[in-house]
Amino acid sequence: MPKQVDLKTIARDLLTKGKVEVFIGYQAASLPLAAAPLIIHGAKDSVDASQSMAPDAERDMMARKVAALIFDDRCEMNLVNYLHKFKDRKTAVVVKGCDSRSVVGLLQEKQVDRKNLVIIGAPCRGVVDRRHVAKLMGCDASREVDREGEHFRFQCAGSWKRVKVADAIYTACRECQVHNPVIADYWIGAPVPQPDLPELTAEMEALRKASPDHRWTRFHKEMSKCILCYACRNLCPACYCKTCFADACKPKWVGRTDDPSDAMLFHLQRLMHLGGRCTGCGACVRGCPMNVDLRLYNDHLRSHVKQEYGFMAGMDSAVHPPLAMYSMGDCNEFIR
């Protein structure tokens, strides 16, 4: 069990003692119910973002940023995505249960070096879906979240409303099977209980039983919302290809028109690339400006990988992902 520490204390310690060059955490965002990434550079950062600052000013800025660190129900972003930016530098990153699985994924795929990583685990009971809360409150500017047991209190235009936690957090969080980080050097909170969940959600059962026509209509509708801004791809820690197929232009593989077939091709290809790799962190869904619900398709893919290979992505860095290995004992002859 990793040691439990205070977030700001450990950040200050790691940065001032030069144990890490970069610390990636959260700060309150300018929007209500939202947190933004906070990237802090230490005194010994080899590629310091503020090279021209005087040492005193630099220390001040670092102290100010450390003081601004938070971790709570607003911290939705999967910060593991930023590890690609700081590849060869000693980096500390705050991860929730879901995010920790992305770290494992990157370790399995040898995209990050464990020696360069300090993992700050944050046990998490789910993060607030601010767009959904705005809908519940009938107000786009809900603020001041307050947690009382199994309820949140939200304020909007002067009035308060109690909302059940399960109604205010993301669907991905309600279905989360890993509330506590699977890999961490330190924990910034006590482990939280993991609720028992069915193998397949009711929604997934229904989708599997639905007629092809029904599924096609739904897929068509979801894809028609997409504007191909690629926020889903750019937010996904598992999407790190140097040149994405969607950006290939000699030849061009994916069109960029508003014909839904272009969005379909992009998302289907991306889904295929994520088979056995998607951990279900929900970064793509939360970041989509058009509310495209990719979750169901990712869930579907994950449930198949689990059924066929008994594999859950991002749980154990010593295990090879099923679609990245073969076995001489494979039941299929063609692969032997």
Binding site: A36, P37, I39, A49, N81, K85, I227, L228, C229, Y230, A231, R233, N234, L235, G287, P289
Partner: peptide, 11 residues
């Protein structure tokens, strides 16, 4: 630094 390089803002 925090920018992930998507096109949501521009689109």
């Amino acid at each position: 630094e925090p920018c992930v390089g998507c096109g949501a803002c521009a689109f």
